[in-house]
């Protein structure tokens, strides 16, 4: 039995970004450059949110209507992806049962960072009409995954969903994206 000697850590892309941030922090006016780069990155991310096509119940039909011709979510760069590996937004559309909750959690964990969740409709937000006298529905999807935007309605109009996505874009546009990613990996 021979134990391998510990390998020296390979400098990853993240580490080089962290080093660049450190240098920029010390330079006069470096913060300004960092902010501009972050602004560009955030603009790109906000304008190409790819949601996971993940319909649970009735709200999924309104989500489909939002993707169809009349409300056309492709206009604002929202293209449905069928696999969590390619998605960065999860629209939880509809009620989630206790049996389904671990699967929703696993799908969320399979999505690459940075990821966002929109809770669409009353049932996903807090159980809605299924809150009382019920043994099978989860009382809100935020017990399983962290939610960024809540869209009320039962089901919300497609416009209401688009408004929720626009609201999420506002949130993405002001995020300290680079700094947070580096800090999360450190």
């Amino acid at each position: 039995m021979s134990t391998q000697p510990p390998q020296p850590p390979v400098p990853s892309r993240l580490a080089s970004i962290a080093a660049a941030i450190d240098i920029l922090d010390q330079l006069p006016g470096g913060n300004l450059i960092l902010t501009k780069v972050e602004y560009l990155l955030n603009w790109g991310r906000a304008a190409s949110l790819w949601p996971l096509t993940f319909g649970l119940a009735c709200c999924a039909i309104e989500m489909m209507a939002a993707f169809a011709g009349r409300f056309d979510l492709d206009r604002i760069g929202v293209i449905p992806r069928a696999t969590p590996r390619q998605a960065d937004l999860m629209i939880v559309a509809g009620r989630c049962t206790i049996k389904m909750a671990p699967i929703v959690r696993r799908l969320w964990e399979q999505m690459p960072e940075p990821k966002y969740v929109i809770s669409m409709g009353s049932c996903a937000t807090c159980g809605g009409p299924f809150y009382y006298d019920n043994y099978s529905i989860l009382k809100g999807i935020d017990q399983v995954v962290p939610v960024d935007v809540y869209v009320p309605g039962c089901p919300p109009r497609p416009e209401a969903l688009i408004e929720g996505i626009l609201k999420l874009q506002e949130k993405i546009k002001v995020e300290p994206f680079l700094r947070r990613t580096v800090a999360a990996q450190a």
Binding site: A57, K99, D133, N134, S136
Partner: peptide, 9 residues
């Protein structure tokens, strides 16, 4: 996976 116990409710 979508049992909402509506008969009981």
């Amino acid at each position: 996976y979508l049992h909402s116990s509506v008969e009981k409710m």
